[in-house]
Design a protein around this nucleic acid. Structure first.
Lengths: 244, 244
DNA sequence: CGTTCGTTTGAAAATATTCAAGAATCGTGG
DNA sequence: CCACGATTCTTGAATATTTTCAAACGAACG
């Protein structure tokens, strides 16, 4: 369907730090700045499996989707990666058919696995951060599985909207607005439902005045409590998506 | 439904290594034997969230399920943990409502997070192993999500049967037999389907002569190729479950 | 200004769940 | 070893949910 895999725009991050948009300003990562190579990608660019075959990426800003295309005729977005998240895909055992694609303009830091390990050995707080971050990503995947397994379509949609509101939203007097970086099809691929079904659910939520839509991607949550009520796992979703 | 959370049977592993059943004989872990405390649990025992609040468990033999009970009236088995797998649940961000329960007689090694980190700092090959192992577990979760999202009920069941055959099965002249450690309900909780539906699917697979059942839990795969044909992701499943 | 792609919506169809009843199995105690 | 009760499993029929298909609409783009 969609595949604009242009070559990467490489840029040494040593030069400057003119990060646009929300970046992951984590102290533990500061030390890596001089070690990492910075990449800036536009929306819908694939992150190369491994330019140098043994690398780790850190998401600095933007949004990345881990997609599995192993099933012919059906694609799944397995995981969404936010600023601060780590892509350690290049290490040995990889899920067959998995690729990483940007869902919005994204800045990445790349470094060799060896480089990262050396830094971690020299800086216990960095090692601590990496460990915890990988664990946090794991927790988000576990929640995602729980949602796929236990919630109805509508409940899952509410869950994603909550996630987006807390991750990407800006609050304007009672309503939370954000630009959904995923298309309808992509949201459907993430929530394990049909794009048609998703459209129906969005329309229903709009009819119920839970949300409003100005353009295709622009969403405003008009009634956050109602949205929470739609998702039985709202507490867990908020817990895992409200911090930096 | 089921909850027999008896106190742990603790045993110092220094004494002996009379491991019954398949244990994870990984050289990199050998070093940890003197550092770890060994626990032997019977089927259906909960692993305490954190006896000492900051511990890491390593599965040495048996099978552990990560369960999420956040949804009232519905439980999900988020992940299955096999020998060699690491439970780093005690680190900071935990999925709300997540617990670990043994699904068969299981031996665990427990150690403090600090202890493990010190060992990893002193032994790069151990650090390498831990890193890769966590990544492998991540890959399995990604595959699980792909299966939940993209496969029909029957295809998911076939996938789990493949997983069990490769993990637990012993081959006897063309057929692979194993004792399924999960009950019908538990399998359903893992595959995100109804126990009734699961029962129907198992009966159908038996009727089609793909498998045979002697007792409730005893399964023999009579036609492995047919089983693979039932699961479009069979290659991925086998890739992630056929190695030690 | 027309083409293309993504979205919306309805009606029909497929898939999976619920409920309820019956059957098989397991554990326990005689 | 057998009988009993409790639990788990199986199965059918009705129901609910979700998908598929098709058509129409809308926005984006050359």
């Amino acid at each position: 369907m969609t595949s604009t895999n242009s070559p990467l725009a490489v840029r040494q991050s040593i030069t400057t730090t003119d990060t646009k948009g929300p970046a992951a300003d984590i102290a533990a990562l500061a030390r890596l700045r001089t070690q990492a190579q910075s990449y800036r990608l536009r929306r819908r660019q694939a992150i190369p499996a491994a330019s140098p075959p043994d690398s780790v990426f850190i998401v600095r800003s933007g949004l990345v989707a881990a997609e599995n295309a192993a099933l012919p005729g059906h694609r799944t977005i397995v995981e969404l990666l936010y600023p601060g998240d780590i892509i350690a895909s290049s290490l040995q055992p990889l899920t067959p058919g998995l690729t990483y694609t940007t869902m919005s303009a994204t800045e990445l830091w790349r470094m060799g696995t060896g480089t990262l390990k050396a830094e971690m050995a020299g800086d216990p707080s960095l090692a601590e951060f990496i460990f915890q971050r990988l664990n946090l990503q794991r927790a988000r995947m576990q929640l995602h599985i729980t949602m796929l397994a236990g919630l109805s379509s509508e409940q899952r949609v509410a869950g994603l909207l909550l996630q987006a509101a807390y991750r990407l939203g800006s609050s304007n007097g009672g309503t939370i607005s954000f630009d959904m970086p995923l298309s309808r099809t992509e949201v459907a691929e993430y929530l394990a439902l049909n794009a048609d079904t998703l459209s129906r659910i969005m329309s229903r939520l709009e009819r119920e005045n839970v949300l409003a839509r100005s353009s295709r991607a622009q969403v405003s949550i008009r009634n956050l409590d109602a949205l929470k009520a739609h998702c039985p796992l709202s507490d867990s979703v908020i817990a895992l998506h409200s911090e930096a």
